[in-house]
Amino acid sequence: MSRRFSPKVVTANRLREGDVVYLTADDRWSPLHTEAELIEDEAHAQLRLLHAAAQKLQVVGAYLADARPGPNGPEPTHFREEFRSRGPSNYAHGKQADGKQAELPNV
């Protein structure tokens, strides 16, 4: 039996601005992790990643990142993804300053 697939989101950086975005179920790129499509099936994940990688004029470096369901939508599970969803810790720059940080528990 194969190992249980851990849920994923598709994430990338926007080509022009370079900021972090997430692929939503309705094919938008959202700056909010909570709006990402939480993908629970491996085959579907690969399809969504292909879909993302094909959008060469919108995003760069799309990949699948581990996530888990939360009260307001998907939440990152790894600290790297948590930082990506928020911004740097030394200044209130990035998403946390743009009002684009989702309500996440303080890990």
Binding site: L15, G18, D19, G61, F83, R84, G87
Partner: peptide, 20 residues
Amino acid sequence: TEEEFRPLRLMNGLYLQLHA
């Protein structure tokens, strides 16, 4: 494409980092 552009931007000191 990004694959073509990446070495060109790196030659000019431009990286893509975590947030930007």
